[in-house]
Design a protein around this nucleic acid. Structure first.
Lengths: 223, 223
DNA sequence: GCATTATGTATCGTTTTGTAACCGGGCCCC
DNA sequence: GGGGCCCGGTTACAAAACGATACATAATGC
């Protein structure tokens, strides 16, 4: 997941067909467990069916960048020269459907599968392009507002009252995804809370009290 | 082009087969001319055969992000919901081979073409992931050093002396690609010049005098 | 040759980061 | 069951990095 406001429900349009590997095969990873590591050879891509994951890269000096968060409907594990380009671990217990890599690269496989995988790759590219604008041009408060808005759309729930998000990731993860520090993320949350845009229920649940104000602070409108 | 040090020569491994549209069809765009605009319906993707282009997005308030530079071997114009997601104009006169979009999405087209296009999409994703680390975690000087290093590898030439790059883009473009301001880019260039890492010949030609020092300043090594 | 645009440089202001302290919750051990 | 420790989050203050502003110089296009 990158930060877009226009995100469609992932994978809805091009469902992964049954030919994508054994149709009953599932991989389960417990919260905190690793699914794959950067540099490992790609055996499978994975369609996330439930739970959430993060894709991570780290520089030699420990600087970390969250490349993406993955939620149900996302396909993860796109190969770079046949290798995984990031680490992947579960933020919450996850169930994933493996898609053998050879099906990705075998030109004679099921055409519907090819179509679905190409659509997934195109969605990935599109979302990443959006994320560049955020990382390159937005201020800290714009970034956090964008992030919360997109997350609300993607995985938010609407209970009896305001829409809300239960964050599977901590402030440090959000910071490393947005190119900020943990403290700055916390400061932005506090500012949004003080101005009545959000309410925090514990650390992990955010209620969106004023979605319009949040969108305005996200400066998400492109010309 | 994003900023990676490990970039392979684009498209070399999976050449675009003859089935990718009319094999003799070529689109020519003059320097400064637009190839497509954000929001237009995608008729074709394009393989750049010569010249260079930039992909651009702009926020309502004028803040601009260069999403990518394109050089020979790059495929550009990946659709987002059937539409172009960026503007594209030529930095230098360019010759491009059009690849009809329907071939991308038609699951029954030539398998070799599918393989080539999927490989191109995967390369794009990989490069973009690298670019996230740069935008999100590197300092201004690291960014500029990374950029020059990658550009040197990708389109640099080695004459009688030091390897050199003839930049098709100005400082403002570099800035908008790296998430910096023009002035900051200029300062970084000056700092590299003063420390003997590069020499500038006019504004557009950069000689790399100390490639090791440049790589060190790029902090490009991943663990 | 002139006007316009791009680039380089200095100075100051703003934003974010860095550092430190504090708080609360969860977990583990006695 | 309680105490201690650890971890994540919040907040205040100081410092650093970069952006904003201003101006001078160089390059480009007509």
């Amino acid at each position: 997941m990158y930060v877009t406001i226009s995100t469609d429900t992932a994978a809805g349009v091009h469902p992964i067909p049954q030919s994508a590997g054994h149709p009953r095969a599932r991989t389960r990873i417990a919260e905190g467990a690793y699914l794959f590591f950067e540099g490992d050879e790609v055996d499978n891509l994975y369609l996330i069916e439930s739970g959430s994951v993060r894709l991570t890269r780290v520089l030699e000096d420990g600087r970390r960048q969250i490349i993406a968060f993955g939620f149900p409907g996302d396909i993860i594990g796109f190969p770079a020269e046949g290798l995984y380009n990031t680490d992947c671990d579960a933020l919450r217990d996850a169930v994933l459907r493996p898609i053998p890599r050879r099906l990705l690269e075998d030109g004679s496989a099921d055409p519907a599968l090819h179509k679905a995988l190409m659509a997934a790759a195109l969605r990935e590219i599109s979302g990443m392009q959006d994320h560049f604008m955020m990382l390159g041009r937005k201020s800290a408060s714009e970034k956090v507002a964008s992030f919360l808005g997109a997350l609300s759309e993607r995985v938010g729930t609407r209970g009896a009252g305001a829409p809300e998000i239960t964050l599977p990731m901590g402030r440090a993860d959000i910071a490393d995804f947005l190119g900020l520090t943990t403290e700055t993320v916390s400061r932005c949350f506090s500012a949004l809370r003080k101005s009545g845009v959000i309410r925090l229920r514990g650390i992990h649940t955010v209620e969106i009290l004023a979605a319009d104000a949040l969108a305005q602070r996200a400066q998400s409108q492109l010309n």
